[in-house]
Computed example of a mutant assay.
Amino acid sequence: MEEQQKGKKLNALNIVSTKYNHRGFGAGSIDLSNVSGIIIDGDEAYVDEGTLHAKSKVERRIRFSANKEDVPNGRKCWIVWVAVDRTEEGPFYGGLAACEMLIDSEARRGWKILADHVNRMDKAMKRHVLVENLNEAEKKLLRDCLINHNPEWWERTGSEIKDALAI
C-alpha cells in the first residue's frame, strides 16, 4: 500500500516557474516566481519572503480572525504585493496592491480578510496598482523600500506606479 501511494500524483495546485515553456500537467497554474511581499509596520518597510505563505515576521504565531472586533488593540500593518515584470532593458516593478492587517502581538491575535489578500495579490500579478488605501507616510516608506531594493528596477518602472507613490 505504501508503494502505491509513493507513485500516486496528487491533483493539487502547482506553482511553476517561467524558466521554460510548460505545457503538461499543471499548465496555466499560478506562477508566484515574480511576486513578493513588502511589510509596512509602523515606520518600517521591508521585503519579507514569508508573506507568500502567511509566515511573515508580523504574522508568525498570530491567530487570525475575519472579525475586526476580535483585535481591539491591534496595530495597522500592510502587506504590499509587488509583481516584477521584465522587458528587453531588464526587470521593473509592474504591479502593486496593498492589503491591511491588524496585529496584536502581545495577545497573539490578528485580523485580515484572506480573500482580499488573495484577490489583491492576483491584481498585482496582473499589473494593477492598488495603493489608494495607504496614507502619504506609508506610500513614502513603500517607495523608499522599492528604490533601495533595486534602483535600476525603479528607473525602469512605469509612471502609473511612480505617480501612485508620489507625495
Score class of each variant (00 low, 15 high):
residue 76 K to H: 11
residue 29 S to V: 01
residue 89 E to Y: 12
residue 98 A to Q: 03
residue 82 V to F: 05
residue 101 M to V: 05
residue 44 E to Y: 14
residue 80 V to G: 00
residue 83 A to C: 13
residue 78 W to L: 06
residue 55 K to T: 13
residue 82 V to W: 00
residue 67 N to W: 07
residue 20 Y to E: 13
residue 109 R to K: 15
residue 48 D to M: 02
residue 23 R to G: 09
residue 91 P to K: 15
residue 94 G to A: 13
residue 59 E to P: 01
residue 43 D to H: 09
residue 56 S to M: 07
residue 14 N to G: 06
residue 60 R to A: 10
residue 59 E to S: 07
residue 99 C to M: 10
residue 53 H to K: 15
residue 97 A to I: 04
residue 79 I to H: 14
residue 77 C to W: 01
residue 92 F to D: 00
residue 87 T to D: 08
residue 52 L to P: 00
residue 53 H to L: 08
residue 110 G to P: 01
residue 19 K to A: 10
residue 28 G to C: 08
residue 111 W to E: 00
residue 22 H to K: 14
residue 70 D to H: 15
residue 94 G to E: 02
residue 41 D to T: 08
residue 102 L to C: 12
residue 56 S to F: 04
residue 65 S to T: 11
residue 74 G to D: 01
residue 82 V to C: 07
residue 75 R to D: 07
residue 71 V to I: 10
residue 43 D to N: 11
residue 18 T to V: 03
residue 44 E to P: 09
residue 37 G to H: 02
residue 42 G to N: 06
residue 67 N to L: 06
residue 107 A to N: 15
residue 37 G to C: 07
residue 20 Y to K: 14
residue 59 E to C: 09
residue 24 G to F: 08
residue 75 R to W: 08
residue 89 E to H: 13
residue 51 T to W: 04
residue 46 Y to P: 07
residue 48 D to F: 07
